[in-house]
Deep mutational scan, measured.
Amino acid sequence: MTYRVRIENADGEVVTIEISADELREKGLTLEELLPPNARIVEVEEVEP
């Protein structure tokens, strides 16, 4: 499974990243732990691999 994640950074700019569930598991991280300081998740969407 892959996630498309929209993130708002500290400057108010919204960027989109895609990350797979396998990648998260391998790194032992959650989506929140990948965020840079002062950023927030705006939207998470599951996409087909």
Rank of each mutant, 00 (worst) to 15 (best):
E23I: 09
L31A: 01
V47I: 14
V44H: 02
E26L: 13
P37K: 09
R4D: 02
P49H: 13
L24I: 07
G12R: 02
D22M: 11
L29R: 06
D22L: 11
A10F: 10
E32K: 10
E13Y: 09
E23D: 08
I19D: 00
T2Y: 15
V5R: 00
T30Y: 03
R40D: 01
A21P: 04
L31V: 04
A21K: 07
K27C: 09
L31C: 07
A21S: 10
R4Y: 09
E45T: 13
S20T: 12
A10W: 10
I41Y: 03
A39E: 02
R25L: 11
K27V: 05
D22C: 12
R25K: 12
V44R: 02
A10T: 08
E26R: 12
E32L: 12
E23C: 14
R4G: 00
I19W: 03
E43D: 14
E45I: 15
L31M: 06
E33N: 08
E18G: 02
M1N: 09
D11N: 12
S20L: 06
E46R: 13
V5C: 05
R25V: 08
E18M: 14
A39T: 14
L35Y: 03
E13N: 12
E48H: 15
I41D: 01
D11V: 07
R6Q: 11
P49E: 11
G28Y: 03
P49S: 13
V42K: 04
N9F: 15
L24P: 00
R25N: 09
L35M: 07
E43F: 14
A10S: 11
K27G: 06
V15Q: 10
P36K: 03
R4F: 13
E48V: 14
L35P: 02
E8P: 00
G12F: 02
Y3E: 10
V47D: 03
V15A: 06
G28I: 02
P37E: 08
G12D: 01
V47Q: 05
V5Q: 00
Y3P: 09
T30W: 03
L31W: 06
V5Y: 03
V14A: 05
E43P: 01
N9M: 15
Y3N: 03
V47R: 05
D22T: 11
Y3T: 06
R40M: 06
D22H: 11
A39K: 04
T30F: 04
N9A: 08
I7A: 03
Y3D: 08
P37L: 09
V47F: 12
R4I: 14
I7M: 07
E33G: 08
G28N: 09
G28A: 05
N38G: 15
E32R: 07
K27M: 10
D11P: 03
G28E: 04
E26G: 06
R6W: 14
E18K: 04
A21Y: 09
E23F: 14
V42G: 01
L35H: 01
D11Q: 13
E8A: 08
M1A: 08
D11T: 09
T30M: 06
L34E: 01
